[in-house]
Design a protein around this nucleic acid. Structure first.
Lengths: 134, 134
DNA sequence: TTTAGATTGTTATAATATAACACCATGTAA
DNA sequence: TTACATGGTGTTATATTATAACAATCTAAA
């Protein structure tokens, strides 16, 4: 059964910032985004943060909490906005979104001591990527 | 088999700040810590951050990344410094460290697509705590 | 004792994020 | 049409979180 999602038509600012993040091979920081879009008329931090908040809300991007950086979602968009997992290389800072059915199933069904389940989670794995291990 | 850990004798500043965090029922923010220890002679942010870094390194406290706040470790101290899991109530902001053998085993053994394992992880679950759900 | 390492104290500054307010665009309901 | 609700924008100012750089001190081990 296919879950339907509302299509969010991005506004001008949202599109500019999303494109930038989406094209980036690495997570971008808010002020780096700001510097990159100033020529397009987005001049103030708040304009960037507002767009980032919105893009996160609709699942187009995720925040890498341990790095204060933002990355485009590559897991069939917004479906996993509330259940995110990443691997982070501590050497080169490469970040990859993990899409593992097993992992997301395990975490979605995880119950704590009191039997409580959680609707939302963020998991960050740290280590050395293939390249940096050699 | 019992794993041995080096005993870290805390210095004066480290002890002051650890005691404060350890006694707190909730995660503390760096500048809140600063305000609370200024009467004890710790006057500058950097003094606080240095101690926080050290306490994290030796596993006495953890950082709640999504909240920029610090909490004492209650899982037999430093053993799990590199494998942390928390539940966070989005209403009252109560944070609890999760100690589940099953969970830590699952995550420690998790392999990504490339068969890579990670030595370190941080997991944050979000939801409503018992109290806030009623 | 001397050297290495960690810790401290201090001033300044960088990096990350939000408050508050006015204005504008769009859709929709009376 | 009006009016009103919602969400987005632009702007200035400010709050919050964190680090740089440098000198002094302490402690443990050679």
């Amino acid at each position: 059964m296919k879950i339907m999602h509302k299509e969010h038509t991005l506004t001008k600012n949202q599109q500019i910032i999303f494109d930038l993040i989406d094209k980036s091979p690495e997570p971008l920081k808010a002020y780096s985004i700001l510097h990159n879009v100033q020529k397009k008329g987005i001049k103030a931090p708040l304009q960037v943060y507002r767009v980032l908040d919105k893009l996160i809300e609709i699942g187009k991007i995720h925040k890498i909490e341990s790095r204060n950086a933002f990355i485009a979602c590559h897991n069939s968009s917004c479906q996993v906005a509330k259940a995110t997992a990443f691997s982070i290389c501590e050497m080169c800072e490469k970040v990859t979104e993990i899409s593992s059915a097993g992992l997301s199933k395990y975490l979605a069904n995880f119950k704590d001591k009191d039997g409580m389940k959680y609707s939302k989670y963020n998991l960050e794995f740290f280590g050395l990527c293939k390249k940096c291990r050699t």
